[in-house]
Simulated assay, not measured.
Amino acid sequence: MARLSYPKAGELNAGLEELVLSRVGDGRKDFGYKTESAGDLASWGDPGLEELTRWVGRMAGQLVEKLLGVSLAEAYLRSREREGEGGRAPVVGVVARRSWASVYRNGDRHEPHFHPNTAWSAIYYAAAPGPCELDLLDPRHFVDYFDAGISLAGEEQRVRLVCAPGDLVLIPGWLRHAVPTFQDEGVRISLSWNLNYMARSG
C-alpha cells in the first residue's frame, strides 16, 4: 500500500467540496451509512478531476513498478511467457474502471469490505474538518475461526491510517478496509477509483 500527497491538492480541494455536494444531491445513492454519487467521476467533465484521475493512475503504475522492480510492460510480457504466449512489448497502464465520491456525515461509517475484480483501490481525501481515518484489516477469511492459543504479529488486528485532505491511499483491491464512525460536524468527502491494468499494442 502507499500513501502520498497530491501536489495540487490546495488548488483542487478549494472547489471540490461544493462540486461533490452538488453532484451527490442529484441522483445520489443513499446507503443509510453514507451517501455516494451516481455515475463515474469521469462523466462530470471537471478538468481538475480528470487531471487527478490521470495522476492516480500514474502513481499506481509507479507503485507496481517499484514493487516488481520492472516496468509494467516487462511484467506483462513475463506473465504471458509463463502462460506459453509470446508477443511484442505492449503499452501497459493503470486505468480507472469505476469512480465515485462518498460523503460521510456525523454517525456515518463503512463496514469492512473489499473491491472484487479490482487490481488497486484508490482513495483520495477531498474535505474533512479533522483527520480522515481508514482501517486496514487482515484479509484472510475466517482467521478467527480456530483459536490455537497463540497469535502472530498483527493477526486479527486493524491498522488505522490517519490521513488528511489532499492525501491519496493506494491499496490492493483484495485488502479489506473500513471507515470508522465519523464523529465530527460538517462532512468528510473522499473520492474512490477501482483501478485495473490495460495493455494495448505500442
Rank of each mutant, 00 (worst) to 15 (best):
Y76V: 05
G107P: 04
W120R: 07
S99M: 01
R105C: 01
G130A: 15
R88Y: 05
V103K: 00
R97L: 08
H113K: 08
R98F: 06
R78C: 04
G107E: 08
G84V: 03
V95S: 01
S99I: 04
S121R: 05
R105F: 01
W120N: 07
G87W: 03
G86S: 06
R82I: 07
V103C: 01
E85L: 13
R105E: 13
Y76Q: 06
P129F: 12
A101W: 00
I123Y: 05
W120A: 10
R97I: 03
R105Y: 00
E83D: 12
A122F: 07
A96P: 08
R82G: 07
F114C: 12
E74T: 09
S99W: 00
G84R: 04
A119M: 13
A122N: 05
P112A: 09
G84H: 02
S99F: 00
E83F: 05
H115W: 08
E83P: 01
A126I: 15
A126Y: 11
V94W: 04
C132V: 11
Y125H: 15
V92A: 00
A119W: 10
E133I: 09
E83C: 06
R82K: 13
H110S: 14
G93M: 06
G93A: 10
A119S: 14
Y124S: 09
G84D: 03
S121N: 07
P129H: 11
H110L: 15
R109C: 12
Y125T: 15
S121I: 10
E81Q: 11
A127E: 15
R97D: 13
S99N: 01
A75G: 10
R97A: 09
R105Q: 11
E74F: 00
N106I: 10
L77Q: 09
R88I: 11
W120G: 03
S79L: 09
V92K: 02
H115P: 07
E85R: 13
A122Q: 07
L77P: 00
A122W: 05
S121K: 04
R82T: 09
E85T: 08
A127G: 09
H115D: 12
S99P: 00
D108C: 09
G130E: 15
A75F: 02
G107N: 07
E74N: 02
A127V: 13
G107Y: 02
E85S: 10
Y125F: 15
S99D: 01
G93P: 02
E85W: 10
R82Q: 11
E133F: 11
V94Q: 05
Y124Q: 10
L77C: 12
Y104T: 08
A89M: 13
H113R: 08
D108E: 06
Y124P: 12
W120P: 02
A119L: 15
G86V: 03
N106R: 15
Y125C: 15
C132K: 08
C132S: 09
E133W: 11
S121H: 05
P129M: 12
E133A: 14
V91F: 11
F114Q: 11
A75I: 03
D108H: 14
V94D: 04
A126K: 12
V103Q: 02
S79P: 01
W120V: 15
S102P: 00
V94A: 03
R109V: 10
W100F: 06
P116G: 06
V95W: 03
V103G: 01
Y125I: 13
P112M: 07
